[in-house]
Amino acid sequence: MSRLRAFWEFVRELAGERDYERYLEHCAAHHPGEPVMSERVFWRERTDRQDREPSARCC
């Protein structure tokens, strides 16, 4: 069961779904006490970054 759960967490991480959790972990570790973005704002900000910095896709 714990293996299945670990696999699911891996899939979520691969899909990028854990990014907000990772952001919160990052904030807790590096900037404790400072305000954090709400989940909705975080995702919006994350997508909009690509508007400013597109990443190349090969063929």
Binding site: V11, A15, E17, D19, E39, W43, T47
Partner: peptide
């Protein structure tokens, strides 16, 4: 969907 309905739910929408 990802913008307004359920942000961050990448797997389900995919």
């Amino acid at each position: 969907y990802l913008r307004y309905l359920r942000p961050g739910k990448i797997i389900e929408i995919s």
